[in-house]
Design a protein around this nucleic acid. Structure first.
Lengths: 148, 148
DNA sequence: ATATGTGCAAATGATTTGCTCGTGG
DNA sequence: CCACGAGCAAATCATTTGCACATAT
């Protein structure tokens, strides 16, 4: 987490931006919250953890593009209109399965998929900067419940 | 296209729904518009093609979940807040690359990816009903322009 | 000192919903 | 006939923007 804060400080310096306490707070809480999150979840988290503080949701919205550019988070998938993000730093790269019944998000990773993906990009001379790979369906648990 | 209309009629019957001219119009124009589309694009298309008609955007919004359930279209990806759909019927399954510079959407398909995907689902006892696989980056053309 | 950041409130854009009226089966 | 669908307008939800004030550098 400190690494993330450091990295963002560097990013600020490099881009003539200020390193405000609000932004550091966002990063710290972001990394404490170690799952997938959307703006609202992060906002509530900060609200509940720092009752005295009054960080506005707008600041989170404004911080996110920088956090992405700085390589701290990435867009993971969008969930019926809401964008979900996840950490990049300290998290292996992976893709997602989402249970349509219980909402659970399962992470998976297959090197082969990445390799094929990269091969396709090379073939088409496409420079990939991000990717989203989400499978929607029903998880083991929910399927079992349904069978009964 | 007629196949799509037929399929939807069946779906209506099976689900105690009505087969209205509005819905048929949506399907027909949908299939005439053979790319990726969002609600607005489809709406404008209908507006411009059928100047006399007055189909409302709301009806499109309300039709979409049915069209998806009926297996006519699927959610392809979301583009900064707007959901983009594409036909299922008469369209091979494929994934997408999206150029962040020019916005072009390139389709690609690799059977191997599908196979691996399916294998992962089987392993985790996950019943996949849809998937989204989008690569964001810069296309050949835009990269060349940038090099100059 | 001053450009950049923050918070608020209002604007926007996509989508949903309440309600009334119309119509397919 | 009458439950389901269509259209309108108003509501909602996520996100963005304008503006006045605050503060990091």
């Amino acid at each position: 987490m400190e690494k993330a804060v450091q990295k963002f400080r560097q990013y600020c310096q490099d881009n003539g931006m200020r390193n405000t306490p609000e932004r550091e707070l966002i990063i710290r809480e972001l990394y404490r919250l170690d799952e997938h999150f959307d703006v609202d979840r992060l906002f509530l988290r900060i609200r509940n953890t720092h009752l005295k503080l009054k960080l506005s949701k707008v600041s989170i919205y404004r911080a996110i593009p920088h956090l992405i550019k700085a390589g701290l988070i990435r867009e993971a998938f969008s969930d019926s209109g809401t964008i979900c993000y996840e950490h990049v730093l300290g998290h292996e790269h992976h893709d997602h399965m989402k249970c349509l019944a219980c909402g659970e998000v399962i992470e998976f990773y297959e090197k082969k998929i990445d390799e094929i993906q990269q091969k396709i990009c090379d073939r088409l001379d496409f420079e990939m900067v991000w990717h989203v790979h989400v499978l929607g369906g029903y998880c083991k648990k929910c399927r079992e419940i349904n069978r009964k």
